[in-house]
Design a protein around this nucleic acid. Sequence first.
RNA 1: GGAGAGGUGGCUGAGCGGUCGAAAGCGGCACCCUGCUAAGGUGUUACUCUGGUUAACAGGGUCGAGGGUUCGAAUCCCUCCCUCUCCGCCA
Length: 413
Amino acid sequence: MLDIKFVKKNKDLVIQNNQSRGVKVDVDELLNLFKEVSERIQNIAGRRTERNKHSKTKPSPEIREKMKLIGDYIQEEEKELKKIQNEIYALLAQLPNLNSTTTPIGSSEKDNQVEKTVGQKPQFDFQPLPHEELAQKLDLIDIDKGSEISGARFWYLKNQLVELQWALLNYVFGKLLKAGFQPVVPPNLVKTKAMFGTGFFPAEKNEIYHVNSDKDDLYLIGTSEVPLVSYHADEVLNLKIPIKYFALSTCYRREAGSYGKDNKGIFRGHQFDKIEMVVFCQPQESEKNHQEILAIEEEIWSELKIPYQVVNICSGDIGFQAAKKYDLEAWLPSQNKYREVTSCSNTTDFQSRRLNIKYQAGQKKELCHTLNGTGIAIGRALIAIMENYQTKEGSIKVPKVLQSYLSFKEIKK
RNA sequence: GGAGAGGUGGCUGAGCGGUCGAAAGCGGCACCCUGCUAAGGUGUUACUCUGGUUAACAGGGUCGAGGGUUCGAAUCCCUCCCUCUCCGCCA
């Protein structure tokens, strides 16, 4: 959420920002409504001042009569005021966060900026297989059964691939603990407030599963960022030291509008497991914390020895709530491409304004900044490992950094 | 699912028709003092909206949310949400 006062003072910037993100909101309409509201508020406040004067004492019957009329008038006016304020809120809620000064401006994925490329691509003296074929041969994934039981984009992971999942989780868990993140197990179903507060509503409502909607009004999280950030809603935090959490959760996504995209294997599914990091900090520290989160992600992929590139996501591709976002894209030999495996965002005060998360700044209370980043997204990490560590014989080697968590060093028939 | 109790500032908690944006304590902030530490003293400290120069200041609103009664509501009534306790059920 943007501050309406900011919008008022920086109209052109906001309009420009909307354009850069492909968002259409009538900012003029918004500001016109805001002006009208200001006038109405002043009018009502004047009447109330009058009434309050008399309410401090025990008024005479004549004055009571007069005050009653004022009361009725105020009531009518406030109904109208409320209506307009709701319209303002609805418009304001559609405004995306402002681009950071270092966010590339662009309309789509193709304008994302590769900041650096790390690691050596594996050289194969054979045709590398896509992960779904490797998995098929080694009995690691059952996609047919997934779609039979749950539908398209669901699957079963099996055998050593599951063991590899636990190894990855343990590895990342240890690393994040060491980095000062507190482990959390959050709820995976949340109310509207959490979805709206973290910026997934209204923009991405179509992406979210609404469960048992006639009875419970709960939503399945698409990332544990939602319950983790919402955790401190309506609180005043002590942020002398940033507050850092991480959580493993299953993530649920409808993937509406991605029909036909990434249909093979487990690259894109309705359900996957992910460790997510979340940081609450003072505004002046958010850039630094963003870099730190990115550094952790890089460290993980460096240690896995999988080639990756760091991408600074452009305005048209950044999503609704982020001011700045980096993705890590890992090399997938079968696709001959780098593909997204992590994502970390600085959402500045966009979420904290909606969720009313403040910190004690001297005598004052100010909105904090929130950040989030992928610790490890299991599905895609497994894909990257399978493809980069495959052998001519069709087996998969285990990355060294994971070997101590496992009883085997290679997945083979 | 049945029966109760309750939701007040950053926290604990008093208030139960006007003198209440709200006692007290804790915490926060500033300053002082003590050789260090532990402690102590003084002051200050809710949020939000509108106007105003992101000021001073003026005014409005806010005691879970929404509605109602009243000249006037934290306080009375209704609806909803949430929390807690007991019973039942399940793990």
